[in-house]
């Protein structure tokens, strides 16, 4: 009887210890979760998609179909920027993109996202045209094909369409520095 009781007490102590350990674990996890960024952005993971898929899109002015794999051959690096005339950050980004078009090994390719032709041409006239090619994604499906989710969004790729850099949201000076490092090096 005595031994049995002792066994029960021991069992109770072990169980309590386990429960407390579990509670402490939960507390630590939740505490850490509090300071984590809750919004999801596909860049943090998904390292598997390293190549941009090839696609055809019409050109803005001429409406001729242009194939991505054809035009990326021209230079060592291509910067693909998804933009729209109705997108406010795209206006601020425009100057930085013009700045980048001076790099000889790099070409800028613009993808006009869900826009009206008139508005986008006006935009390029007013703010300047930093792009060598202006492609049009009228219904936004090609951008989804690229794994993008809004404007502005930018990819830096090489000749083989390997993604070297992916920028969600407007480009800043840090990104410019990175792009210059990659393209000059």
């Amino acid at each position: 009887m005595e031994a049995h009781l002792q066994f029960l007490v021991k069992k109770k102590i072990t169980l309590s210890f386990l429960i407390i350990a579990f509670l402490v674990f939960c507390f630590l996890i939740l505490n850490k979760a509090l300071n984590k960024d809750k919004t999801y952005s596909p860049t943090f993971q998904n390292q598997k998609v390293t190549y941009l898929p090839d696609f055809n899109l019409p050109e803005l002015f001429s409406s001729n179909e242009i194939q991505l794999s054809e035009i990326v051959k021209d230079r060592d690096f291509s910067l693909i920027n998804i933009w729209a005339s109705w997108c406010v950050p795209c206006r601020e980004e425009n100057d930085l993109l013009k700045n980048l078009s001076n790099i000889s090994s790099l070409q800028n390719i613009g993808i006009n996202y869900k826009d009206k032709k008139k508005n986008s041409i006006n935009f390029l006239n007013n703010y300047g045209n930093p792009f060598k090619y202006n492609l049009v994604d009228y219904n936004g499906t090609q951008s989804i094909n690229l794994g993008a989710y809004g404007v502005p969004e930018t990819f830096l790729i090489n000749k083989n369409r390997k993604i070297l850099l992916k920028i969600i949201g407007p480009i800043n000076n840090d990104h410019i520095r990175k792009i210059k490092e990659i393209t000059n090096g």
């Binding site: 996202y113 869900k114 219904n139 936004g140 499906t141 951008s143 989804i144 989710y149 809004g150």
Partner: peptide
Amino acid sequence: EFALSMRV
């Protein structure tokens, strides 16, 4: 916009 494009 994203959702609408996604539907298409």
